[in-house]
């Protein structure tokens, strides 16, 4: 409940504030008239343009990306029993980026799916990356310690980033497009981007929400989950795929935005407990609110210049990551 209010408030504030401040009452009117097809509304047409064509799609996109990353992070953490896991630290975001950069760099368009080529390849690369990371981590250390997985993720991240840099070095005019995209942003995306992410968002989050109990069981270890009756192999693949779909689609529309999937589930768990049946939906709500507010901060804090949104999330996320790591270590010492 509190999380829903937070989200609605974040949406309204996110739309309202900017170089031109739009009164909240007008926002409600504009959105209401569009949604319910009422033609006559007594609002400044400039406001309508700002709200409907610029700010609202931007806020919705930020919200969807935030929700996707947060629920994916929560699911990865439960699956790997690893509070430090998130699409970014696991290298999944980097994998998705490689897919996206390749698409842009090589001007790939797969027939039939057309504009969905970009998210499709991002998702594919995200999935390949997460599976590769897990296989590698298992090779290094059978017990899959928290740090081993993260370390493997970092190695993959660095390698993939180097690969992206290589491609950037080889590009000519696509350079600026790729670089700005890489920094992570939800600005100037418009409704077509929402169309791109929405189906993947719906499929991915539906799959994860269906696996709340299984994630609870798996956070006690895969063997324990199997003993409890969970079909671990299938559920694991399902969760990894759903997480990759969400991450890949999010990266495809907004670039790599780090730490949302780490910070939000952690915060949510602190407030509402670790039960995935609640954790997953609540992470979605708080995640979208968080990213909407982070985007608001990114575009207003040194206005008129816009900061990449990833800067804001990393500024908040990295210290939280460190804090969790220290806390975890301490707990480990006592065991």
């Amino acid at each position: 409940m509190a999380a829903s209010i937070l989200l609605v408030a974040a949406i309204l504030i996110g739309i309202s504030i900017g170089t031109v401040t739009v009164p909240i009452g007008d926002i409600v009117k504009i959105i209401g008239s569009r949604l319910f097809n009422i033609s006559h509304v007594n609002v400044d047409p400039m406001y309508t343009t700002i709200v409907w064509n610029i700010r609202f799609p931007r806020v919705v996109l930020a919200g969807l990306v935030g929700a996707s990353l947060a629920i994916a992070g929560a699911a990865f953490q439960g699956l790997l029993k690893n509070p430090l896991a998130d699409p970014y630290t696991l290298g999944v975001s980097s994998g998705a980026s490689v897919g996206a950069v390749l698409t842009i760099f090589l001007h790939i368009t797969i027939p039939v799916i057309g504009s969905y080529t970009l998210p499709f390849l991002s998702i594919l690369f995200a999935l390949i990356t997460i599976i590769a990371v897990l296989i590698f981590a298992k090779r290094i250390d059978r017990s899959m310690k928290v740090e081993t997985i993260i370390l493997t993720g970092v190695i993959f991240s660095s390698f993939l980033s180097a690969f992206i840099s290589l491609m950037i070095a080889l590009t000519g005019d696509e350079l600026r497009q790729i670089v700005s995209w890489l920094m992570g942003s939800v600005s100037m995306r418009g409704w077509e981007y929402i169309q791109i992410i929405l189906p993947f968002f719906l499929i991915g989050s539906f799959l994860l929400l269906m696996n709340g109990n299984e994630l609870n069981a798996m956070s006690f270890g895969e063997e324990r989950a199997q003993h409890l009756g969970v079909n671990v192999k299938r559920r694991k693949m399902l969760v990894l795929t759903a997480g990759s779909i969400l991450t890949g689609a999010a990266v495809a529309v907004s670039g790599t935005i780090g730490f949302v999937g780490l910070v939000i589930p952690h915060l949510t768990r602190l407030l509402w407990g670790p039960d995935h049946k609640h954790l997953l939906p609540l992470s979605m709500l708080t995640g979208s609110a968080f990213l909407i507010l982070a985007d608001l901060t990114a575009r207003t804090v040194i206005s008129p210049t816009e900061l990449p949104i990833g800067v804001i999330t990393s500024l908040i996320g990295a210290p939280v990551f460190a804090a969790i790591l220290i806390r975890n270590k301490r707990k480990g010492g006592e065991r």
């Binding site: 953490q77 029993k81 006690f220 324990r224 409890l228 407990g273 670790p274």
Partner: peptide
């Protein structure tokens, strides 16, 4: 099992309830 691990702070009841899965 001999070793049981948990990554997150589930309550006792939440843990037991998983047995109903």
């Amino acid at each position: 099992s001999q070793h049981s691990s948990q990554a997150f702070s589930y309550t006792v009841k939440e843990t037991v309830a998983l047995g109903r899965y």
